[in-house]
Amino acid sequence: MGTAIVITSGKGGVGKTTTSANVGSALAAAGKSVALVDADIGLRNLDLVLGLENRIVYDLVDVVEGYAKLRQALIRDKRFDNLYLLPAAQTKDKTAVSPDQMRQLVTELKAEFDFVLVDCPAGIEQGFKNAVAGADQAVIVTTPEVAAVRDADRIIGLLEAEGIRDPRLIINRLRPQMVKRGDMMEIEDILDILAIGLLGVVPEDEYIVVSTNRGEPAALSRESKAGTAYRDIARRLMGEEVPMVVHDAQPSLFGRLRRLWGGV
């Protein structure tokens, strides 16, 4: 029996889909079987980030409505034969699925896969309720901005109400140079405010744009700092102890010197 993890945030545009694609790919690269579920019905995107948009035949709503079997709708990834995507429907809306149906679907997937990652839509309405149904754990993605952190706080409360305890936080798009100047909240500030555990820190990295353009997850690139951060996150999800290092995309002279001295 695998583990179902919902990837959520409240606010849109903080990187839920990018996180889902990259963490899923990193888990698959580490040998785990992974099902990625795009729960953003009506605004399908996970297929595009993974470069699988041309392979879709059936979608999540087709499965729920009985037009397709789960196996038929699952798309195998180009790179890993242990990574699958269940795409969202593009023509329906969130009311096409109920939380009970999602719970059943996720339970079926958990029987087949080590990890089921559910990419949650933005917002706190029906789409959110569907995406969290059946999840054993939650990962909250935020960026170091006031609006994203505020929405993350709201989501933590809602997850608790849904019976999902101890969500873990990914701080995305951190810019270490701005943190050093005191112009961006640092990790400790955000953890202090939200009072939840940290799963990982992903630095702002131009390579994410390049990899999304190509439909090739950054987690597969050894050069990408964000990719390294996603691989760290995947290892933590597998239960490994990985030191919490911020992989700075543009190390300053000072940063490089500190690294020479053996610091972080």
């Binding site: 006031v146 505020r150 100047r181 005191g182 112009d183 961006m184 909240m185 500030d189 405010i193």
Partner: peptide, 15 residues
């Protein structure tokens, strides 16, 4: 005041 401290303080209050 550093803008990150302003951000943290505003968040603390609004939350």
């Amino acid at each position: 005041q550093r803008s990150k401290d302003v951000a943290k303080e505003r968040l603390r209050l609004v939350l």
